[in-house]
Simulated scan of single mutants.
Amino acid sequence: MLEELTNRIHAGESIDVDVCAGAHPEYAGQLRRLLPAMQALNAFGGSHTAGKDFTEPFAAIPPTTGVLGDFRIVREIGRGGMGIVYEAEQISIGRPVALKVLPFASMLDERRLARFRNEVRAAGQLHHTNIVPIFAVGSDRGVHFYAMQLVVGQTLAEMIGQLCRDRGLETPVGTMPSPGGATAQSGETARAALSTVRTDNRGAFYRKAALLAIHAADALEHAHACGVVHRDIKPSNLLVDERGVLWLADFGLAAVEAGADLTMSGDLLGTLRYMSPEQTQGSRVVLDHRTDIYSLGVTFYELLALRPAFDAAERAELLRQITDVEPLPLRRVDAAI
């Protein structure tokens, strides 16, 4: 039925929600909730949505212009596990923002919708100079979204990748671009500065890396003090703006003061290469703030060494390395560290 409705909406047919709900009373509640969102998403994209399957995980507003509540969409800037992020303008005050939109398929999944709300709850209660703040949260015609500060710069993942390319090294798998945060890549000042000091003055590079690590550690200390464990610290969730200030983003997997468990039994949530040994055990153990500290350590190990702390390509071997092997000491990678 959902496929039939999708095709009718793509064909330009206007579907009366009341009539449709009356024809399918067993699904009336779901139809009243989902049909307005389907029609709204189709309206944003116009012809660009032709052939799009709204049941796909990232079926949402296409990278064109549109309006959601008080926000005018400018362009798509990233996709992450929990949604699509757009550069947008808050119409009422003319403020640029990053707007994260929940994909349509996630509206069909109560667990994904719960994680989206959990992300808003976790990040929304944190107020720190190194944590991307949330400005507003809302729903327009059934489309869920929230607005956050737009950070002009790059992710730490992109910076590590560029440093590797500058030195002719293989780019680590974990640092391939996968932005789901709030970065707009309209400037390369921070990345260029870090690349220059890495080439010209390794001591200055290591001091700059240490400063970024301090920013991240300060942000995590604040989150932990507020009862929030991030659980997905990795280079692509650390943003560096044009001034060289680091921002912590993407609280989609955060645990809030022993709140409801949003995992399935045995789930591995997060990116394996940056997981703590206890996090690789899935839901069999309770995670606390120490898992974030570990993940931050392996993240900055990668920045300093320009190689992952653990580099196995196969999942089983990578799990074994994380749980049983010590990383190569950094000073054996580079005695100048």
Rank of each mutant, 00 (worst) to 15 (best):
E3Y: 05
R8V: 10
R8K: 13
H10C: 10
A11W: 13
G12Y: 06
S14F: 10
I15V: 10
V19N: 04
A21L: 06
H24G: 00
R32W: 03
R32Y: 04
R32F: 10
R33Q: 12
L34E: 05
A37T: 08
M38P: 06
M38N: 06
Q39A: 13
N42F: 13
F44V: 15
S47M: 07
A50Y: 00
K52I: 13
D53L: 08
F58Y: 15
P62F: 00
G66E: 01
R72S: 15
G80S: 04
M82D: 04
M82K: 03
E87R: 04
G94P: 05
R95L: 09
V97I: 14
A98D: 11
P103N: 11
S106Q: 05
D109I: 08
E110G: 10
L113R: 14
T129E: 14
N130V: 13
I131F: 11
P133Y: 05
R141T: 06
G142S: 03
H144N: 05
H144G: 04
Q149P: 02
Q149L: 06
V152Y: 02
A157E: 03
A157S: 15
M159A: 12
Q162T: 06
L163A: 15
L169A: 11
G174E: 07
G174D: 10
G181K: 06
S186A: 06
G187W: 03
T189A: 01
A190R: 07
A193T: 03
R198M: 10
T199N: 08
N201M: 03
N201C: 07
Y206W: 13
Y206C: 01
K208I: 00
L212C: 11
I214N: 13
H222A: 11
A223Y: 10
A225Y: 09
C226R: 12
C226W: 02
C226Y: 07
V229F: 03
R231E: 05
D232F: 02
K234W: 15
S236I: 01
S236D: 15
N237Q: 03
N237V: 06
L238A: 13
L239S: 12
E242R: 13
G244K: 04
V245G: 14
W247I: 08
A255K: 08
V256M: 04
L268Y: 05
G270E: 07
T271E: 02
T271D: 01
Q281M: 02
G282F: 02
S283F: 02
R284C: 04
R284H: 12
V285I: 07
L287Y: 07
H289F: 09
R290S: 11
Y294I: 05
L296P: 05
F300Q: 02
L304Y: 10
D311E: 11
A313P: 05
A313L: 06
E314S: 05
I322H: 09
E326M: 12
P327Q: 07
R331L: 06
R332Y: 05
V333R: 09
D334I: 09
A336G: 08
A336T: 14
